[in-house]
Design a protein around this nucleic acid. Sequence first.
DNA 1: CTGTTAGCGCCTTCAG
DNA 2: CTGAAGGCGCTAACAG
Lengths: 344, 344
Amino acid sequence: MTDRLDGSVRLEDVAKLAGVSLATASRALNGSTRRVRDDLRERVLDAAIALQYTANAHAQAVARGRSDVVGLLVHDIGDPFFSSIAAGVIQAADREGLLVTLASTGRDPARELQFVRALRGQRARAVIIAGSRVDEPAQMAQLAREVASYRAGGGRVAMISQNRLPVDTVMLENRASGKALAKALVGLGHRRFAVLAGPAELFTARDRLDGFRQGLTGAGVSLPARHIIRSDFTRDGGYEALQQVLDADLDVTCVVAVNDVMAVGAMAALRARGLRCPADLAVAGFDDIVTLRDVTPSLTTVRFPLEEMGSTALSLVVGAEGVRPRLHAVEGQVMIRESTPSLG
Amino acid sequence: MTDRLDGSVRLEDVAKLAGVSLATASRALNGSTRRVRDDLRERVLDAAIALQYTANAHAQAVARGRSDVVGLLVHDIGDPFFSSIAAGVIQAADREGLLVTLASTGRDPARELQFVRALRGQRARAVIIAGSRVDEPAQMAQLAREVASYRAGGGRVAMISQNRLPVDTVMLENRASGKALAKALVGLGHRRFAVLAGPAELFTARDRLDGFRQGLTGAGVSLPARHIIRSDFTRDGGYEALQQVLDADLDVTCVVAVNDVMAVGAMAALRARGLRCPADLAVAGFDDIVTLRDVTPSLTTVRFPLEEMGSTALSLVVGAEGVRPRLHAVEGQVMIRESTPSLG
DNA sequence: CTGTTAGCGCCTTCAG
DNA sequence: CTGAAGGCGCTAACAG
C-alpha cells in the first residue's frame, strides 16, 4: 500500500508487489507486442488490481510520443446541430479507444485558434473542427497556419463544413441541397419566396442561399433582393427576420430559413403576430434537428445525417493518412412535411 | 529549425535558439514564480514564437504531477438536457483555463465506471458526473469505490443529480418540483391525472413522480396506480406511454411526463390519434429544454437552470476542497404555459 | 522471456 | 538572476 503524497500508485509499486521488473510489469499490463510468461503476467495483473493501479496516461504519452485523445472543436455545444455531431464523434472515438476533449468556441475564430494550439500542446492525436467557416481571409490564413504546424507535428485534422483547407473534410452539400429544396417547393406550387438568410459571411448560410436561388432561377422563379433578410444564425435571428418580412409586407407564400432553429423562430414570430403556419405562410428550414421533429406543423427541411457525419470525420482522422486530403461529401435529403403544403 | 522525426519543437530547441539554459526558458515561458531578466525573457519569447513552440502538456503534467483537464460524464451528449449542462461546464472550465474531456456513457453504468477509470489514468484534475443515478446498489457501490480511489489520488469529484455519494453535488430538487407542479396544476382546476413516469429505477424519474403524487395527496387529490405508466425516459417512451393512456381509456384531464422530451412525444402521440392538446388533454413536463420552448402549444414544465448547474458543478470542483462534501440544491421553477389551461 | 538502462519533455530544487 | 542536474512515470531498445 505504497502511499505517496499524491496518493497514486506507480508501475514500480505494482512490479515490486508482483516481484518482477518494471519492464515486465509494463509489458504485462499495457499492450505490448512482447509476451510475458503466464504465471508472471498473472501475478502482475493481480498486483495491479490489488493496488488499484491505473497507468499514468501522461507518462505513457510522453514515453510513447503519442496520446489517445482527439480534440473536437464546435461553435456551441448547446446547439443541437453540434451536439448531434459530437455524439457521432464520441461514439466513434469510443470504439477506437480514444478520449475526446471538447472545446466550444462560441463562434469566435480567435478562440478556435487558441484551442487548436492548446490541443497541439496536448499532443492530441487528431482534431476535428466542426462548423461553418467564415469569409474572412485573414482568419482563414491564421487557422491554416496553425493547422499546418499541428500537422507538421504529426497531428491529423478533419473539418466538418466546407472544403476550404487542404485537410480531410466532411463537406455538407449546402448548395445542392438549397437547390433541391427550391425545386421541391416550386414543385408544390410556390412561386413567391423570402429567405431568412443568416449572416452573409457564414459560408454555410451563404451556400444554402445561393443554392436555393440557383434552384429558383432554374425553375424560372425570381427572388428579389429585398426578399433576402439577414439576421443571426439562431432561433432569435429567425424570429426577428420574420418580423421584418411581415413589416415589409412582402407578398410571399413561403419563407425558407437557412437552418431549422431559425425556422422555428420564424414560426414563433408568426404565431406572435396571430398568423398561422402553413395557412398564412409556409416555412422551411435546413438540418432536420432531432429535437425539432415534433414541432407543429411539422417542419419541411433538408436532412443531414449529423451523427453519421461526426463518426465519419473521426474515421477519416484515425485511418491511414492519404496522400492527398480526402473529401467526403454529404448530400442533404429534402423532407417535405406539413409546414409547406401544396398550393395545388 | 531542429527537425525531429515527430516534427515537434522542444523547449530545448527554444533555449538553444535564445542562447539560454533550459531552466531559464522554462521559467520565462511557463508561469513560474521566479522572475527572469527582461532581455532574456524577451529572447526566449521571440524564439518560442519563431519556432511555433507549444509546451508538451503531457510532459508538463508528469513533471508537475497534475494536469489541466477535467472530465465530464454524461448519459448522452445528443440529449439537450446534457448538452446544456455540458455547455455550462465547458464555459466555466474555459474561464479557469481548463480543458474538458467528455464521455458519453449511453446510460450504461459499466461504461461510466470504465470512464472514471480512464479519467483517473489521465490524471484529470476533476471529474463531473452528470445524470440520474439508478437504483442498483451493486453498481452504486462499484462507482463509489472507483470514485474513492480517484479521490485518494488527489482527484476532485462532483455529481449533478442526486446526493447519493459523499462528494460535492449539484442536486436537483426533483421531489419538491414535482410537488410544486402538482399544486399548480390542481390550482388550475385539474383533478384527474396520469403520469408518464419513466423507468422505476431511475431516481430522477422516481423522485419527480413521488413529489408529484405527494403534492396531489396534499391537495386531496388521488392518483390511482393504473394512472402511472412506465416507459423509457425518451421521446419515444413518452409517445408509447401516451398511447397506453389512451388505450386504457383513463379518464383524465392532464398528463404529466417526467421530462420534456417525453412530454413532446406524448403530444405527438395525441396528434397521431387525432386529438388535440390542450383541448382534449393537457400535458406538462420537466426541465424546460431550450429547443422545446417553441413547440405548440407551449409546454408547461418545471424549469431547471441547466447551464448554470454545469458551471456550478465546475466551480465546486476547482475551489478549495471543503472538509465535508458540499451540497448545492437547485430548485425547479414551475412554468405554466398553454399546454395546461385553467379548467375554471 | 526477463531485466537493465536510457531516454521522452519538462519542472524544480540546488549551487553558483 | 542563471545554469546544471535530478526526477516525474512510463516505454523501448539493448543485453542476457
